[in-house]
Structure formats: structure tokens, C-alpha cells
Design a protein around this nucleic acid. Sequence first.
DNA 1: CTTAATATTAGCATCAGGTACTAAACACTA
DNA 2: TAGTGTTTAGTACCTGATGCTAATATTAAG
Lengths: 187, 187
Amino acid sequence: MSISKKSKKMRQNELLSKLDIEPFVTDEELSDIFEVSIQTIRLDRLELGIPELRERIKKVAEKNYLKVINLGKAEIIGELIDLNLNENGISILEATKDLAFEKTKIIKGHHIFSMAESLAMAVISSKVALTGVANMKYRIPVLAGEKLIAKAELTKIKGNEFYVHVKINVKQEQVFRGKFILVSIEE
Amino acid sequence: MSISKKSKKMRQNELLSKLDIEPFVTDEELSDIFEVSIQTIRLDRLELGIPELRERIKKVAEKNYLKVINLGKAEIIGELIDLNLNENGISILEATKDLAFEKTKIIKGHHIFSMAESLAMAVISSKVALTGVANMKYRIPVLAGEKLIAKAELTKIKGNEFYVHVKINVKQEQVFRGKFILVSIEE
DNA sequence: CTTAATATTAGCATCAGGTACTAAACACTA
DNA sequence: TAGTGTTTAGTACCTGATGCTAATATTAAG
């Protein structure tokens, strides 16, 4: 009867892209959206191999909780002013205007990332490391002229994985924090 | 009786730090770890205002699903070879050895990030943008000498939010992908 | 030692968001 | 009109909880 009633295949295709964009939708909500019964949605998910809501949420959470980025060892960005190997370290960086966007004077994000990353690596004794990053957070934009103070702390060693917490402050304000997971590898 | 039986406060402190490090633990598992009943764990959570497992998972998922990074508008990194404003764009970048670590010849991660980010911004017509990043993934290390091809596609506009999907390939291999959320702001 | 306060455990009903299964009602088409 | 695919309905069960009441331990104080 319904004008918008579509074929099974069309519905399933739309279901796939819907859940790809917006994975946190219950079967009930989906049954409203597609104007079919919950059972139909469940059958569709079964056929398409789409897990239930809770599994979908879990996947997103897990995937992003330990995000692995491949990098080699960096020379340190900023000035190393204190270092206790396998414990902690502090570096400072004068945010000159050549690190910023011309118009807005906002420091480019990757410089902050690099500063944190290179300090994290410096704290670890191992030569080469593969890094994973979790809970990365840029909090407020940094402007040219400000002085960045990064503090890194080795919080855990698990096998060949080193967990390093890095916080970057400008004055008293935290502008960045992130947990780095560094994995020492043999050359 | 138990030697390791500690005071309520100690347990609650440990509970907090435990869940901070490892949020995906059920009450049942916690009751095993701390050697108290499930009910005690629940009371502890209640007193400490810690939400249930599913809520904790959800929080992690949501937080990382839309991770907002503050940046200004970047000049493009790489060479822009095709651009359809508000649709898509392609850029290439010769990964010269000055973008890589000396020893390993692996291209530094933030250059890849910058390439993707700047292309994403180029696709959007608005002058200045605040970016969020979701689902960022570095897949394989890129070596000096390789040619990076970045393809960006505007997938959705929601109010003043622009969703741009960027994929970077080397030959046929995908080395990076990420969803950028660009928010146009007034100056 | 006894009492009172605090902490812990137990048990049960209830909930959300499902799985897994069976059976029945439609719809199409040959 | 029979046969097939599609959709719907209903039930029992599952996990990881909440919210509640009641009972029992443990600890501290008089």
C-alpha cells in the first residue's frame, strides 16, 4: 500500500549505508525508518551479516580505543629540557608564526601532534618504535607566540608495549593530551 | 579472612583507576578481581557515579566517533591535480626522503595526515574551517620515493558541517583513510 | 562484652536489546 | 491454483544491568 514501500534489495542496501553512517540505531528505530516489522530488520541483519547494536557500538569503541599509526623514530620536536629514560620527560616549544596558518595564527595541529609523539618516543629507550595512539584529544587552538610545555610519562610496560601519557599545556591550560602506545621492534 | 582484603576506600580508588585504564569490564569480572560480590561492585559504582558497562562502551565509541581537532585552514600539501568544489578532489605527493625518518625511510605520519587534511579542506568552499576527525586509520607505512595519491570526497553536508572522506593510496594499496568533519566558521 | 553503625551479600522483579526458533499470513508469478 | 519468497507474529531465552528489600558480617565505640 505504502508509496515508499521498496523491494527487499533496496531496503537492504539502504540499511547497509544507514548503519555505516550511523551505527548506533536500534532495530526498533530501524523498523520505524523502513516501515517494516522488527523481525524483518532482524532477518535483514542476519542475511547481511550485520551484528546487533551492542556489538556495533563495541566495535567502534574498540577500534578507536587503540588506533595504530605507523611511524619511525622521530628527531625531537621542541627543546628537551628534562628526561628520565623510561620514566618521564619535558619539552618546550615556542610556537613561532611559521608553524601557524597565516590568516588565523592558529598553530597547525600536526605540529602539536609531532611534539607529543617525539617526546613520547624520546622517553623510551628502544631505538625504533611503532606507535599506536589512543584517546588523543586536541582541546583548544594554540596561537602563534605561545609557549607549549609537553610532559610525557611512561605509565605502563606490557611486554614490548610502552604506554606513554603526554599532556601539552599553554600556561595553565591543557591544549592536548594523548596516550601513546610505543612498540619496540627489532631492526 | 583474605589477606588482600582492603578497605572500601582503597577498593573504590582501585576500581576508578582500573576502569579508567580498562573500561570494558563487566561487574561480574570486577567482582572476581576485587573478591567481593557483584552487589558490592554495583554499590561502589553507584557511590562513585560510574555508569554501567554498556554506557561506558557507548561513551568511548561516541567520543572517538567524532573527535574534534582544532585547526585553521591549511595551504595544500601535495599537488592538486583535480578539484570539483563541494564534490571531490585529487592530490599527489612525491614522498621525498626529507619527509621520512633517516634510518627507516618511513614517511612521518603527520605528513600523510596533513596531506589528507589539506585536501579535505580544499574541497570545501568555505574559507576557514574547524576540523573533526573520525575513523582515522594509517594502514601501512609509506617509504621515501613512493607516490601518494589522495582522493577526497564530500559525502554529506549537515548544517555547517561538511563530511569529507579521504583515502590515500600508494599504487593500489590504501595507506590511509579518514573521515574529516569540517565546520565552517565566521571570521 | 555488647551495642550501634557501617559494609557486604543475597534474592528477586524488571528492563533493553537483542538471539533463535516456529508458525502463520501475504504477495507474486507461472 | 499451487508453489515460492517475503514479511509478520509470538514465544522462550540471554546478558548485563537497575532498583529494591532483607539479612548477615565487620568494625568501632561505649
